[in-house]
């Protein structure tokens, strides 16, 4: 840990689909201050050294979820990771693991985005309340039940951290299953039965072996591993108790 400023070497994994068959590494040297982030370094390189370096970024304040990269092999938000912690370097930046690389540090996110509707990530009510009837009531305690799962910014670091997703892209994955839990745990929601098929599926909670790495890398404290594994018990209950619920409408 150095607290001052200086220079740091950064190794960046580059890939240009129009020229390359596989990525190669390029070295850049950038200056840094005590508060320079990895994103600052990438912007410095793009602006002053090589404009062809491609990466996603936007808010710079760890809330939009755009700028996840592998930083020395660990998935992190580059806006929230500081060069001082890696001095004197070198620092290795790659595209998020487990996703197909489009170019340089940019990955194809369809593996998450296309599955989103399967989570039914919206409030499901048996009877929708009229606007005129005002808001639903929900106590602070009830709200606390889904406060942490609702904090997910979809940055996909958890997918890059999950070897099971890496081996099996059909796996719904940590963020999606955390989203399922977010709505299921919302006292206003009545859509659990609609979401159970995803939970119960082979590609649902049952592809998880509780590596736990998703929760370790989450920059927002979501704990997807807990969201998934709590639902293993729910799914197991659903598996055996569905026979007892015939006619109760509990199961689909």
């Amino acid at each position: 840990m150095s607290d001052g400023s200086g220079q740091i070497d950064i190794l960046i994994s580059r890939y240009d689909p129009e020229r390359d068959d596989q990525p190669h590494t390029e070295r850049f040297t950038v200056p840094y201050q005590h508060d320079s982030s990895v994103l600052d370094a990438l912007l410095y390189i793009k602006d002053r050294i090589d404009g062809s370096l491609s990466f996603r970024w936007s808010c710079r304040m760890a809330i939009c979820g755009s700028c996840g990269k592998m930083i020395n092999g660990v998935p992190r938000l580059s806006c929230k990771t500081f060069l001082r912690d890696y001095a004197p370097g070198p620092l290795h930046i790659e595209a998020l693991h487990h996703f197909p690389v489009i170019k340089d540090l940019v990955v194809e996110q369809a593996g998450f985005l296309d599955k989103l509707p399967e989570a039914r990530p919206w409030l499901i009510r048996e009877q929708e309340q009229a606007l005129a009837d005002g808001p639903h009531r929900q106590s602070p305690r009830q709200r606390a039940r889904f406060a942490s799962t609702s904090a997910c910014i979809n940055c996909l670091l958890c997918y890059a951290a999950c070897p099971q997703y890496g081996m099996k892209p059909d796996f719904a994955g940590p963020a999606l299953l955390a989203l399922v839990e977010r709505y299921n745990a919302d006292s206003r929601d009545q859509g659990r039965a609609e979401r159970m098929p995803l939970i119960n599926a082979e590609d649902g909670v049952w592809s998880c072996t509780l590596v736990g790495n998703c929760s370790a890398v989450c920059p927002k404290g979501v704990d997807p591993a807990a969201a998934i594994n709590r639902n293993k018990l729910e799914s197991a209950k659903d598996y055996f108790l569905r026979f007892l619920k015939i006619g109760s409408g509990g199961a689909e």
Binding site: W122, P135, R137, Q138, S139, P140, R143, A147, S150, D186
Partner: peptide, 14 residues
């Protein structure tokens, strides 16, 4: 709120 926005709540649930 009806769409699920997690507004912060008072003790009365509103």
């Amino acid at each position: 709120e009806h769409w699920g926005c997690p507004w912060s709540r008072g003790e009365d649930g509103y």
